[in-house]
């Protein structure tokens, strides 16, 4: 049977995929996608724990994570559009203005 640890392992794998994406990508839009992947991984873990401990708190936190993700995307995409209009690129290496 599928237990809690199965779901937690899948969630950990998806989370590490997202983390590798955040570390590896240089494009800001791709960084946003990787962040969404990480948030979804956490949601899976919350729902699984909520199911196996017969507790609704996990689902509540998953709802709030979804709300936070939605507002993050709204603000972030607005910022990306402004950046793209200003610099014509979303590459982090192009956007870096401080040399060090």
């Amino acid at each position: 049977m599928i237990g809690l640890s199965h779901y937690l392992i899948v969630s950990a794998i998806i989370f590490s995929i997202g983390l590798v994406g955040v570390l590896r990508r240089r494009n800001l839009l791709m960084l946003f996608f990787a962040t969404e992947v990480m948030l979804n991984a956490v949601n899976i873990a919350f729902a699984a724990i909520s199911h196996y401990y017969n507790d609704l708190t996990g689902q509540m936190f998953a709802f709030f994570i979804i709300a936070i993700a939605a507002s993050e995307v709204a603000v972030g995409l607005g910022l990306l559009i402004v950046l793209y209009k200003k610099y014509g690129s979303l590459d982090l290496d192009d956007l870096a203005s401080m040399k060090g």
């Binding site: 709204a74 603000v75 607005g78 910022l79 559009i81 402004v82």
Partner: peptide, 10 residues
């Protein structure tokens, strides 16, 4: 707040 910020920024 996020909606207003998105509208104003974009």
């Amino acid at each position: 707040v996020a909606m207003i910020a998105g509208i104003i920024l974009a």
